[in-house]
Design a protein around this nucleic acid. Structure first.
Lengths: 195, 195
DNA sequence: ATAATTTCTTATCATACATCAATGCGCAGT
DNA sequence: ACTGCGCATTGATGTATGATAAGAAATTAT
């Protein structure tokens, strides 16, 4: 039962035979990673796309001033990777770390090629993933350019209500681009307003 | 001489026959757009990718508070598009406008499919464009999360020294996510330091 | 050339958010 | 259960940047 979600994800998006997918997917390791464990570190090459079967991962960077910036939270059914590092074969600027004990399928370039050859529609699917990624990044940029601390937090709640409850506020703050103290104050204000 | 740069761009990236590319590319309109003219407006669907043969385009949005945010400056040899709108067939959140009189090749979905069928390597090329786009967006996010006004401006100078001289500062400011007044102050400070 | 806009600069004032610091809470490990 | 460390909260203070306004400069239109 270690790749069920990935298989479900693929079959529901690709309209292809489950047995066939299974025979490919099962060749790729599904790894149990413990809380705090790293799947990628800064300056190493990212060779995988991680699909989260269960648990929660976080991708983040540490800037020149020593500050952490959360790039993504990746709960069940999410893909995470450093596409930049993987595609251009460059040292990564990011860490990917488990925030909870997790089960993760390790997908690599061979997997992609294998599926692309076998299922022409996979290329399109992959394309869609890229476009979704771009859409997500655009939204993030727009938020950073136009929203106040409070607005950012409200957007976050609306988008990821579940994640909010599973990660420390300090990491939410680093996702929103504000300090933990500011986030705390924003929360107090909102609580005061609503009751 | 209206598609030379696009053809050069494609042949140098695809290693395919120039004559063959030409026969396809020449079917697509190369449009002369005048300064101030719009190629895309908010809420309309983006049906094209624009390749800039000459001149300069700007992609920007206007947020809920009425403020402009420059997404991209696109000088010669650049592609611009709203991938989100085009790919998901959604109303666009952006404007694309000419900052200078420009010559622009209008590429559409048919063009992509045509080239993909004819040249399998085109799919890979397209993939590379997507990854470059992602890399660019990541960099932007990192800048917005970690850099001060001055640092942003210095990064901009380093990356786009040519563009700096061709666009009003008010637009550079809206790209950096600061006010024109702040940019003016930053510039004065830098001038004072260096001499 | 002249007039009309738009942009740039500069100054003053306002503010959202950061920084620093202290306290208490809560969960994790022993 | 005890201990310790990281996290959240709160207050005091600082600062970078925003808002507003007004005049200078530059660009565009007539």
């Amino acid at each position: 039962m270690k790749r069920v979600k990935l298989i479900k994800y693929l079959t529901s998006n690709l309209e292809i035979d489950e047995a066939e997918i299974l025979s490919i997917v099962e060749k790729y390791p599904s790894k149990k990673v413990e809380r705090e464990e790293f799947l990628l570190r800064e300056n190493s090459r990212c060779k995988h796309t991680f699909f989260v079967e269960s648990g929660l991962l976080r991708q983040y960077s540490i800037d020149e001033k020593g500050k952490e910036h959360t790039i993504t939270f990746a709960p069940e059914n999410w893909f995470v990777s450093d596409r930049e590092s993987a595609y251009f074969n460059q040292p990564s600027a990011y860490y990917i770390q488990a925030l909870e004990d997790s089960q993760v399928v390790m997908i690599d370039e061979g997997f992609m090629q294998h599926l692309s050859r076998k299922f022409p529609s996979f290329t399109k699917f992959n394309n869609k993933l890229l476009h979704n990624h771009i859409r997500h990044l655009q939204k993030r940029i727009h938020m950073l350019l136009s929203a106040t601390a409070e607005e950012r937090y409200l957007q976050f709640i609306a988008m990821y209500p579940d994640i909010l409850l599973r990660v420390p506020q300090i990491m939410v703050a680093s996702y929103l681009g504000i300090t933990p103290e500011s986030l705390s104050r924003v929360r107090r204000e909102l609580a005061r307003k609503k009751g």
